[in-house]
């Protein structure tokens, strides 16, 4: 694998609460790839991946607190940066 191809990923439970979250992530990260497994989804992306609270809020019709993601998070890969607005995964290389 070449240096430029380090991927990050986030894995989430596949349930009613994550449907719009997954939609928002895929819409905001056009380079992301969705993998579907029983009861879970894994979204991987070369370089970095960002989750925007506003993007989810628009889809669910209420203010979404990014920390709600904790309930359905399964796994992740990459350095985390967390603010009220955005949750980002990235590698430094």
């Amino acid at each position: 694998m070449s240096r430029t191809e380090s991927s990050v990923f986030v894995a989430l439970q596949a349930n009613a609460d994550t449907r719009e979250l997954v939609e928002a992530i895929l819409a905001d990260n056009p380079h992301a790839v969705l993998h579907e497994d029983p009861a879970m989804v894994r979204i991987s992306a070369v370089g970095s991946l960002s989750v925007h609270a506003e993007s989810v809020s628009e889809r669910i019709g209420r203010d979404y607190d990014l920390q709600e993601m904790h309930i359905n998070l399964i796994s992740l890969s990459g350095h985390v940066d967390e603010t009220d607005e955005t949750f980002t995964l990235s590698w430094a290389n």
């Binding site: 439970q13 029983p38 009861a39 904790h70 309930i71 998070l73 399964i74 992740l76």
Partner: peptide, 28 residues
């Protein structure tokens, strides 16, 4: 946990996902 999901074990799948939801914080 995938083994549980594939083999019809809702109980293990559930506690597996519940524990994993903390794992992201642990990994980080």
């Amino acid at each position: 946990i995938s083994g549980a999901a594939y083999n019809g074990d809702m109980g293990a799948m559930t506690f597996g996902f519940s524990a994993q939801s903390d794992e992201a914080r642990h990994m980080t």
